[in-house]
Amino acid sequence: MAGIIDTIKLGGTLVLALPAAIAGLELVMSGQTNYGVALIALAIGLVVVQHWLTLPSDIPELLAKRVVGTVTKESEPDREDDRP
């Protein structure tokens, strides 16, 4: 499940990618296929790069997630059915 920060980052990327994709679709519909496909590819590339690229500013967040995941692991419950 994505956190609130990831959702905000995706929203910011979509603010830039959606107008390019819409303009690309309009260009494809009007017959200028090369420019339209280029804009659509740019929009898809923006979203993919934002999702997969790790920036140096993201490293502390990744480390914090890993530490929290290690600290909050659930221990196995006591098995009371083995006792006489």
Rank of each mutant, 00 (worst) to 15 (best):
G11A: 15
D82I: 14
P77W: 07
E76L: 15
E61M: 06
A43G: 08
G69N: 04
K73M: 15
A23N: 05
L18W: 05
I44A: 15
I22E: 02
P60F: 12
G36M: 02
S30D: 07
T54P: 00
R79E: 06
L18Y: 02
A43I: 03
K9E: 15
I40G: 03
S57V: 04
G69I: 00
G12W: 00
R79I: 08
L25T: 12
G24L: 04
V67T: 11
E61H: 14
G45W: 07
T70C: 05
L27C: 02
G69K: 03
S75A: 07
A43E: 03
I5G: 03
D78M: 08
T33Y: 13
P77C: 04
G12K: 00
D78T: 00
V15F: 09
G24M: 04
R83F: 08
T33Q: 14
Q32D: 08
D6G: 12
K9N: 07
A2T: 06
G12Q: 05
I4V: 11
T7V: 13
P60L: 11
G31W: 04
L25A: 03
A23D: 06
L16W: 04
A20M: 13
L25Y: 05
G3D: 15
P60M: 12
Q32R: 13
P84E: 08
V37T: 15
S57A: 11
M1W: 07
M1E: 15
S75Y: 05
L18F: 01
E80V: 10
D81Y: 07
T54R: 10
E80Y: 10
A20P: 00
I59F: 13
T54M: 11
L42M: 12
I59D: 05
T7E: 13
G45H: 07
Q50P: 00
V68L: 08
K73Y: 01
A38E: 09
V37K: 15
L42E: 12
I22Q: 02
V28K: 12
I4T: 10
R79C: 05
R66F: 03
V47F: 06
L18E: 11
G24S: 10
T54S: 09
K9V: 12
I59Y: 13
M29G: 07
A17V: 02
A64S: 14
P60K: 13
I5L: 06
I44R: 02
T72F: 11
L46E: 09
